[in-house]
Design a protein around this nucleic acid. Structure first.
Lengths: 234, 234
DNA sequence: GTCTATACATAGATAGAC
DNA sequence: GTCTATCTATGTATAGAC
């Protein structure tokens, strides 16, 4: 299996790459035109937004906070973003694209259900670690968004959960996994994976590495879904 | 095992009982003196706070929102609370007291580790369902609190987790459970229990009852911690 | 006890100089 | 491209009539 360091190197998830993509797709969005400048400042703005929001909440973050943290004046800030609301849309949309791309790519690789499941658990964990601030933000702020944005958030949760549901279902049909409620099981897997980035303080304090955590979750899930040795032999 | 309806009837967790307790302990806190009035309005205020905050976040809830929702004028509101901040303190403190009381009480009842574990899982779930708004609020707003209040929140998470750690440890020592990383296992149980109130929409949509969910979590955890039949027999 | 009216601070956003 | 100064809306909180 891949280590987290290898994963992080393999997929370039830097905020810079993300902002460059965004600028090239929406070149006329900002008042400023030079790519290098836009990317440089957009990186600052988005990084600062995630950091401040994850400390005290997006709503509590004022644009003045953002100005102080980025070193840009109020006026400069508003030449890159149309307002606070747009920040939410950019962050969410760019994040989702990456998540969909990486997760579906990783799962396609696996051959049998068992291997696919391990791969999905590990990739989901690694991805959330590489984009921890984004995942945390996305989870915590969802309920404060507009109804429409909330819907997209829920769709994303259900999309990633569906990846697990499909793997589990395929495994059941193939007789590799024992019969089970695949929806509940997939929901449980999601909850375990989310706990990693929702409570970083807990795992840091106990010095649990992400590789250990991946093995633990895999073991816990497998103990539940694999046919027990006793039942399988006769 | 007890059903949720029975649990809810057994322990009276109404907001009214909670507010009455609070008033009797802090009789000189509010400007208003008549118990019936204070309790009646405090119930309105706290209920409204939880409802609005859980929809758009505590920070985004204005005192004017609170005034509209409770039917009390701004002036009247401020004769029950000293400010928005105090609301947080009241809600958190009263909630914690109840959680500690109910959980420790329920776990003391169980005899052996296995029974205690089931009891703890079920009670934690039922309690979070009976006080769903409070649990959701507590989870979502923690990161937005003052450093000191955050510490109390984390202590609470660790306290309830410790209940599970102790049960698991006792079970391991008694040879009833197989050897395991009890801290990781307890953390996983917490994550599964929290998922119930963090994503009510998911379970509602799938028509999963809380009794079913309790059985599912118990089954999942037991599959992991019980010595496997194959390993146990020789 | 409850209300209305209001003070005062801070928020988001923009105009126009440089 | 970036800054400072400023507008307007909204927020928390209080004073004082009833």
């Amino acid at each position: 299996m891949m280590t987290f360091a290898e994963f992080q190197e393999l997929v370039n998830l830097s905020m810079e790459a993300l902002c460059r993509d965004f600028f090239r797709e929406n070149p006329d969005r900002a008042r400023v035109k030079k790519e290098a400048t836009v990317v440089r400042n957009l990186v600052k703005i988005l990084d600062a937004t995630l950091m401040i929001s994850n400390q005290k909440g997006f709503q509590a973050m004022s644009v003045r906070d953002l100005s102080r943290e980025t070193g840009l004046s109020m006026g400069a800030l508003y030449s890159y973003i149309s307002g606070k609301e747009e920040l939410l849309a950019i962050i969410r949309a760019q994040g989702y694209r990456i998540v969909v791309r990486i997760l579906t790519g990783a799962i396609a690789e696996g051959s049998d259900p068992h291997e696919k499941l391990r791969q999905a658990i590990q990739t989901h964990l690694y991805l959330s670690e590489a984009m921890r601030a984004w995942f945390y933000f996305s989870y915590m702020e969802t309920k404060n968004l507009s109804k429409e944005e909330q819907k997209k958030s829920i769709q994303m949760e259900l999309f990633t959960e569906k990846l697990f549901i499909d793997i589990l279902s395929a495994g059941c049909r193939a007789g590799r996994f024992r019969p089970m409620n695949v929806e509940l099981t997939a929901a449980a897997i999601k909850a375990l994976l989310q706990d990693w980035y929702l409570k970083p303080w807990k795992h840091q304090r106990r010095k649990v590495t992400i590789e250990e955590y991946a093995r633990f979750v895999t073991g816990l899930v497998e103990a539940y879904i694999l046919p027990s040795p006793a039942a399988a032999s006769p």
